[in-house]
């Protein structure tokens, strides 16, 4: 009896030990996952601390309603509206390019393309989002801008919002196409067959049955794509110029929030000054704009996802 007990205890101890090792491994893996939470907290804390110390010196009312953004000049203006208007101009412009193209691509890929064409075309479209954005900047500056100056708008300077709009629009096409394609393909076959059964043509099935059924996924992809366009940095830095400009004319040079942040960090503004703190205030604004859009997008996906079973 006592022999049995010692054997059980020994095995129990051994199990306990290996269980302890297992728990340790679990804890280490948990820490790995927790790095992502720390990252988010770090971003929020850093933006808030430096942003708040900026807003201690500049009133938020001046920041969000002022129309003059000249923090690096002697007569300082801290109105962020010109940067926001530049960002919105490029974001909405890119949406005008990407949403129709992306939607048509998604419909083509999911409803018309044969599996063979699809297997070639889908990766090709996705290459568009794999190209470094600085390469798009180069293309915009050396190809699209001169083209527009030559044929469409000779008065334009070397920098213009429109050529940034074109390349940013193209680079977010895969986001729209890919997510919308998934949404369209998730629409069950029965819905299509029922529509065909009552005599609908392919066009009618696609536009009146499949597309509305996939609408929530499609809209989520739109919002996500616009959010990506707003956060885009290098192409707009290279092609759109560096002049904060409250305008809706896409042929003028504008500066976006992201491009402003880059221009400060490329310069030699000393750390700790109010000029330098502007990047945190602008960064905070940018972070919240994209965060809100991303959350709306994922809410739509979650809440309005049609569950077909």
């Amino acid at each position: 009896m006592s022999f049995e007990t010692t054997r059980v205890t020994a095995r129990y101890r051994q199990n306990l030990r290996s269980n302890l090792g297992g728990r340790l491994i679990g804890a280490v893996l948990f820490l790995c996952a927790f790095v992502t939470v720390v990252t988010t907290v770090g971003i929020v804390v850093i933006l808030f601390i430096e942003g708040l110390s900026f807003f201690a010196e500049v009133s938020p009312i001046e920041f969000f309603t002022g129309t003059k953004w000249t923090p690096l000049f002697t007569s300082k203006g801290f109105g962020v509206l010109p940067l926001i208007s530049g960002t919105v101009l490029i974001g909405l412009g890119a949406a005008c390019v990407a949403l129709p193209l992306g939607t048509l691509t998604a419909i083509y890929l999911s409803e018309y393309a044969t599996p063979r064409i699809r297997s070639v075309m889908k990766p090709l479209v996705e290459v568009l989002s794999g190209i470094p954005t600085v390469v798009y900047g180069y293309f915009a500056l050396t190809f699209i801008s001169p083209f527009i100056k030559e044929y469409l708008y000779p008065e334009a300077g070397p920098y213009m919002a429109i050529s940034a709009i074109v390349v940013v629009g193209i680079m977010i096409v895969p986001i729209v196409a890919s997510i919308s394609d998934d949404a369209l393909r998730a629409v069950p076959r029965e819905l299509r067959e029922a529509a065909y059964g009552v005599g609908a043509s392919k066009l009618e099935v696609n536009t009146r049955v499949v597309f509305p059924a996939a609408l929530s996924g499609v809209i989520a992809s739109y919002i996500l794509a616009i959010s990506r366009a707003i956060g885009e940095t290098m192409a707009v830095t290279v092609a759109a110029g560096a002049r904060p400009n409250l305008t809706a004319n896409p042929f003028e040079a504008v500066q976006t929030m992201t491009a402003y942040i880059v221009s400060v960090s490329l310069g030699d503004t000393p750390h700790g000054t109010i000029e330098f703190k502007t990047i945190f205030a602008v960064g905070l604004t940018l972070f919240f704009m994209t965060l809100v859009m991303n959350i709306i997008s994922s809410r739509i996906t979650k809440r309005f996802r049609e569950v077909y079973d």
Binding site: F34, G42, I43, I49, E50, T258, I279
Partner: peptide, 30 residues
């Protein structure tokens, strides 16, 4: 954690740059 990961994937890369500038370059959170 899972929601946070998908949100983090949507944060503009330049914001990560601001994080890196403070956290790694200067060793502070401000």
């Amino acid at each position: 954690i899972q929601t946070n990961i998908s949100n983090l994937a949507g944060v503009p890369s330049i914001v990560f740059g601001i994080l890196g500038l403070q956290l790694f370059v200067r060793g502070t959170i401000g």
